[in-house]
Amino acid sequence: MDPEMFLDVANSVAELHMFPYFDIANYALSCIHVRDDMNPNFLIVSRKHPFACWISSMLSCFAGYIVSNLLLGEMPLAPFKSAENVALASLVWYLIFYSPFDVTYKLCKWFPVKAVLNVLKEILRVHKVHHGIHHARKMYPNAYLVHIIIGVARGAGAGFTKVIERFIRGTWTTTGHEFLQPSFPTKACFAASVFFVLEDMTDWMTWPHSIGYLVVVIFFVYFKVSSMLLHIHDPFQPIENLFCAVFMGGLTDALSRALQSSREKSAAKVPGAAVVQNGDGDKKKL
């Protein structure tokens, strides 16, 4: 591809407007995630507790902004000040849960439509990460760790609010949260946040910012499509396993187990010693 054409594409992607199409994809997939998480109690919650269903769905739709605002000391309800976004998210929620014959849910689960929705959502996720870092940089210019944390919270906030969503719907699970079992979107948002922060704080990344932005978008879209087609759900896992084995005590634990097993085998090979009784009635081995 011609470099100038590639740069034009990168600039176009970086300047995309997210509302309304990318937001619709995010709202639809967020509501589908909430609905799938309800099974097998979907009908009970959606029919008997529609308000709790709506609250948990809105929390999932705007989770990134709510979590990042809480961390920055801002109003967590600020995402709901836009009547257009709330109305659009509520319309999508209603269609996902209450459309006649469940046609909207089935259409969104149809693979071609699902693939398009996921691609749009991943592009929106990169946009959230980038703008979260930019917002945090305005408040704390040199706090690079804060920039990374806000980028992750803005891009993968739904994973951190899952426990609260379930609590609102009457299900309390204290072990199924993102800190214990981080998902691929959280890890990918962390990698993207580190990349954007390094791009801003170092001089050796000499390419235009839009090129780096496009590379991150391609990374997110590629692995999302791969997970749908090839069922590759976490490409970071082999790297994590190697890192933990080398630096997090894996090698030490393996050596300890090997030494313990060797000692047990050596002890098992020693023949049993004869036992005699002395004059005091004590037993000793010969």
Rank of each mutant, 00 (worst) to 15 (best):
A245V: 00
D282A: 13
S82Y: 03
V126L: 07
F51Y: 08
A274Y: 07
G159M: 02
T173H: 11
P20Q: 03
L70I: 14
W54E: 03
S193W: 02
L107N: 07
S183T: 14
A52W: 05
A89C: 11
T186I: 01
L230W: 12
A254Y: 04
D234F: 03
V217N: 10
V9G: 08
I218P: 00
F195P: 00
G249H: 04
M201V: 15
A14R: 13
I148V: 15
H131D: 05
R263T: 05
P141V: 02
L145H: 11
F219M: 12
F243A: 14
I44G: 01
D102V: 04
C31S: 11
I32V: 13
L16V: 11
P100S: 13
T252W: 06
V197A: 02
V146S: 08
R263P: 00
L29W: 03
A83N: 11
E178A: 12
S60K: 01
E178S: 10
V270M: 11
D234K: 05
H49Y: 15
V34P: 01
F167K: 11
L180A: 14
Q181A: 14
A83W: 12
L117T: 01
N142W: 05
S227M: 08
L229S: 06
Y94A: 15
W172P: 00
V13W: 08
H233L: 09
S57G: 09
L107K: 10
G73E: 06
F219Y: 14
D234T: 03
F184T: 10
R47S: 15
S193T: 02
L255T: 08
V103T: 13
F223D: 03
V129C: 11
V129P: 00
